[in-house]
Amino acid sequence: MSKNAGKVLPHDFIIREIWGIYTDEIHTLRVNMANIRRKIEVNPGSLRYILTEMGVGYRMVEELSENL
C-alpha cells in the first residue's frame, strides 16, 4: 500500500497482490486490514492512515508512506 499511497486500491487488486489467485474472499482482507489498523492507528475508531473507500477498496494517506 505504501508504494501506491494516495491511490485507491480496489479489494480485488489487494487480494491478488497478497494471496494471488488462491483466494477471492473479501472477508480475509477485511480481517487483515483491521489487524493492521490496530497496530498502526493511534485510535482505530478514528482512522488517519488507512482509509476505507466504501464499495471500492482502501487508500493509504500519503503522509504515512513518507515516514516509512
Rank of each mutant, 00 (worst) to 15 (best):
I50Q: 10
V31N: 10
E62W: 14
N35E: 13
T28Y: 03
E41H: 10
V56M: 06
E63N: 14
R48P: 08
W19E: 14
R38C: 06
M33K: 10
M60K: 00
L51Y: 13
I40V: 08
L29I: 07
R48K: 09
V61A: 07
W19M: 14
V61K: 13
G55P: 02
R30N: 05
G20S: 03
T52Y: 15
P44V: 04
S46L: 06
G57L: 00
A34D: 07
R48F: 04
V31I: 11
Y58K: 10
Y22N: 10
V56K: 02
H27Q: 13
G57P: 02
V61M: 05
S46V: 05
I26K: 07
L47Y: 07
G20H: 04
G55H: 07
T23M: 14
I40P: 13
I40R: 01
W19V: 00
E41M: 03
V31R: 11
Y22G: 11
Y49P: 10
R59N: 04
N43L: 01
R48W: 04
R37C: 04
H27T: 12
I21L: 08
M33E: 01
G20P: 06
E63F: 15
I36S: 00
T28F: 00
T28A: 11
G45A: 07
M54L: 12
K39T: 09
P44K: 05
M54S: 04
G20W: 02
K39H: 03
E53Q: 10
V61T: 08
E53N: 11
I50E: 07
E53T: 12
N32T: 04
E41F: 08
N43R: 04
L47N: 07
R48E: 03
R59F: 14
V56I: 05
G45Y: 01
W19S: 05
W19K: 14
E63T: 14
E41Q: 02
P44I: 08
E25Q: 02
W19N: 03
L64C: 08
Y22K: 12
P44L: 10
Y49F: 08
V42P: 03
W19P: 05
I40L: 02
N32D: 00
G20R: 14
G45N: 03
G57Q: 09
K39L: 01
E62T: 07
R38L: 05
R37V: 05
V56E: 01
R30P: 00
E41D: 11
H27V: 01
Y58T: 00
E63V: 14
